[in-house]
Design a protein around this nucleic acid. Structure first.
Length: 257
DNA sequence: ATGGCAATGTTTCATTGA
């Protein structure tokens, strides 16, 4: 079973790419972030024709998440947002697919260290950790996929000295991310040997992608029983090439049946 | 090939992202 996550930076702009990628990769589950579409405008018909059923939580202009499920599987227990956590921003959706609890997250960016949005990000992380903990208690087979807006370690940053202390790599953010790992969730990418300087996001500016000036901020976290089934995890940097790319590349993990 | 921001709406600039 292939589980994937992709911050598409506007599903409206990226729909042809997403359809092409689904056709090429045929994942069972694709989690999307930054769909930037209110639910009434979500292109579920087009996806259905492509063989996928979508479940989504969107809003105009910003944020928005979706879980896209291949139609030979069923998605149950759809939950939007973090239960008990008030948030006007659409950043979380969960579903159970093929016996695996899927939680799709778009963690706040944080803008700059110390800003109001940074404080919101840290509080959001804490709520997400509580949620992950309660989900783990009822779903041993759990995957949390999405844009975590944190590069966990120096090796996840193209130039750690340049980025030192900046938003996305600051220590409080990394501590918040490690709260998830402390629950037992594992970074599936690091279960395997990986090429050095592998990233999931590159700035549109200053030739970020051609120079590989990137960060690894998109992750697939797995509970221990699911991680034990994981046979691969990689980042598809090909999807960052060509005309009108998202600034993020998809992450795709495979788990055995 | 992978090329010097992109997407959105409040649109002709401001805001946000990371």
């Amino acid at each position: 079973m292939k589980l994937a996550t992709w911050n598409v930076n506007s599903l409206n702009m990226r729909l042809p790419r997403v359809l092409g990628w689904l056709a090429a990769m045929s994942p069972e589950v694709l989690c999307l972030q930054e769909t930037k579409l209110e639910d009434a405008k979500f292109p579920h018909d087009v996806l259905r024709e492509a063989g996928y059923e979508a479940h989504f939580a969107g809003q105009k202009t910003y944020n928005g998440v979706a879980i896209v499920v291949r139609r030979d599987l069923v998605a149950d227990d759809i939950v939007r947002g973090i239960p008990g956590f008030e948030d006007t921003q659409q950043r979380v959706i969960a579903a159970t697919v093929g016996g695996i609890r899927i939680v799709c997250v778009y963690v706040p960016n944080g803008q700059s260290v110390g800003s109001e949005k940074y404080v919101y990000k840290l509080g959001w992380y804490h709520a997400a950790a509580q949620y992950a903990k309660s989900e783990l208690a009822v779903h041993p087979q759990l995957a949390v996929l999405g844009d975590f807006n944190v590069a966990p370690e120096a090796r996840d940053v193209h130039d750690p000295v340049l980025w030192e202390g900046q938003v996305l790599v600051s220590e409080p953010e990394r501590v918040a991310f490690r709260e998830l790992l402390a629950l037992g969730l594992q970074d599936s990418f690091r279960l395997f040997e990986q090429p050095p300087a592998t990233f999931s996001w590159w700035d549109y500016r200053m030739l970020g992608f051609p120079k590989n000036h990137g960060l690894r901020i998109d992750h697939i976290l797995m509970s221990p029983p699911l991680a034990a089934r994981c046979t691969s995890c990689r980042i598809d940097r090909n999807a960052r090439k060509g005309e009108k790319p998202s600034d993020h590349a998809p992450v795709i993990a495979e788990v055995s049946d």
